[in-house]
């Protein structure tokens, strides 16, 4: 992958941002292809170790969204 195409690991809440992402897809909106989505049941499922494990395994950034 090119140096300036970062991988952004995204943890999206099932009920909020994941829904928004779904809607964006259904509405055929365009957005950068750099995000890699992981659906979590709720932002409360988030744990600091997910973030660190993601960075450790080479993600360029982590985004948590409720």
């Amino acid at each position: 992958m090119a140096e300036n195409e970062p991988k952004i690991l995204s943890f999206l809440c099932n009920w909020c941002s994941y829904g928004a992402a779904d809607l964006a897809g259904v509405s055929r909106m365009e957005y950068p292809p750099n995000i890699r989505v992981i659906r979590i049941p709720c932002t409360g499922r988030m744990n600091p170790k997910f973030i660190l494990a993601g960075l450790r395994q080479g993600a360029d950034a982590v985004w948590v969204s409720g």
Binding site: P48, K49, F50, L52, A53, R56
Partner: peptide
């Protein structure tokens, strides 16, 4: 396994931060 068990600086740092 969330945290590597090795002596790798990244693993050590992950442990301390967590």
């Amino acid at each position: 396994q969330w945290v590597g068990k090795s002596q790798d600086p990244v693993d050590v740092k992950t442990f301390h931060i967590l």
